[in-house]
């Protein structure tokens, strides 16, 4: 007997898909649970974890931010292969401000966020006039070339980098700062992507010519998306500079480019929550795999290929569907 899978929206999804018509506290909880969960998790986790895993949580948050920044770009039709450009720009900006001009971390991080985002936007502006893979190519090239340039001209400490940055006042401030920013970015930019503004960005990804036909200047929107994404990436870089108290060529390393992509693809592109979920899966996993060292990038590469072929929607969409729908096998009508 041939069967097909029937998917039925749960009652709560039907009633609350467009307008909220909730009948009980239970339903309220069912709906708000997934949204409240990350808040509670981020608030409580630092207390539960030991010092080592607190550090892991820190890098989870940083990679989540990078993945979110990648996802925003991907939503606007720009596939970046060099998230480390944003990260590194932020890191170097913060490093220079702190080391040469002696600013405090609370000044350098916001300044470096904006400055790093701005520099990245300017560097990538020429590419925005082209569609398709040009953006990916140039983003892949830029960080590697910048490394060469720093190596060759020995600016900003050259191969040695700059060390001895001022640290954050305490590890609690450190943790809650980055977790707070992550929550803000996650929910804020999710909202942004759902608004009309986000609609234009997604429209550019789907069909840029028809967006142009609607009388919208897509270059302006693309540049804005680039700036937003650059700022998020630069923030994580600037933040990490003060955590490691060091900035050098490793900030342009491949890890910072490939892990965010892997996280977003594994978690599910398009929702930002998926990107965060992906980082929450991949970073601790790679921490457990620390013993294999260099194989980590191989592992990410394999995950990327497997997920893009077998589950291109990503884990988040899959879970979301299960949360909102029943599934059952029904016989096919003759």
């Amino acid at each position: 007997m041939k069967k097909r899978k029937e998917r039925i929206n749960r009652g709560i999804k039907v009633r609350s898909g467009d307008i909220y018509a909730l009948c009980s506290w239970q339903e309220m909880l069912y709906l708000s649970g997934p949204r409240i969960f990350p808040f509670v998790l981020f608030l409580l986790l630092p207390f539960v974890l030991g010092i080592y895993w607190q550090k892991v949580l820190l890098s989870v948050a940083v990679f989540s931010l990078l993945a979110i920044s990648w996802d925003i770009l991907a939503q606007s039709g720009m596939i970046s292969l060099g998230q480390s450009l944003f990260f590194g720009m932020g890191a170097y900006c913060a490093g220079i401000m702190n080391h040469y001009w002696g600013m405090s971390p609370f000044l350098t991080i916001p300044l470096a966020t904006v400055a790093g985002g701005f520099i990245c936007t300017v560097m990538l502006l020429p590419v925005l006039r082209l569609r398709g893979i040009y953006f990916s190519m140039v983003t892949l090239i830029l960080p590697i070339m910048l490394v060469r340039i720093i190596e060759a001209t020995r600016i900003f400490g050259g191969t040695e980098g700059i060390s001895g940055m001022s640290p954050m006042p305490s590890k609690w401030i450190e943790l809650y700062l980055v977790l707070g920013v992550l929550l803000g970015a996650l929910f804020g930019f999710r909202r942004m992507l759902d608004s009309d503004y986000g609609l234009v960005l997604k429209g550019i990804a789907d069909n840029d010519r028809s967006v142009t036909n609607a009388g919208i200047n897509i270059y302006l929107f693309k540049a804005q998306a680039l700036f937003i994404s650059g700022c998020i990436g630069a923030f994580s870089g600037a933040f990490m500079t003060h955590v490691y108290m060091f900035v050098g060529m490793p900030v342009f390393a491949l890890d910072y480019s490939i892990l965010p992509i892997a996280a977003a693809v594994v978690g599910g592109p398009g929702t930002l929550a998926g990107a965060t979920l992906g980082a929450f899966i991949l970073v601790p996993l790679s921490e457990l795999l620390r013993g294999v060292g260099g194989l980590r990038i191989v592992f990410y590469g394999i995950l990327l290929v497997v997920f893009i072929v077998t589950l291109p929607e990503g884990i988040f969409h899959y879970v979301q569907r299960k949360y909102n729908q029943f599934e059952r096998w029904v016989e096919v009508d003759r």
Binding site: I79, S136, L140, I258, I261, V298, I302, L304, V305, I308
Partner: peptide, 13 residues
Amino acid sequence: LAEVIATFGMGLV
């Protein structure tokens, strides 16, 4: 998007 990521991933591996 998928093509770029897949080929890049394989190259990395």
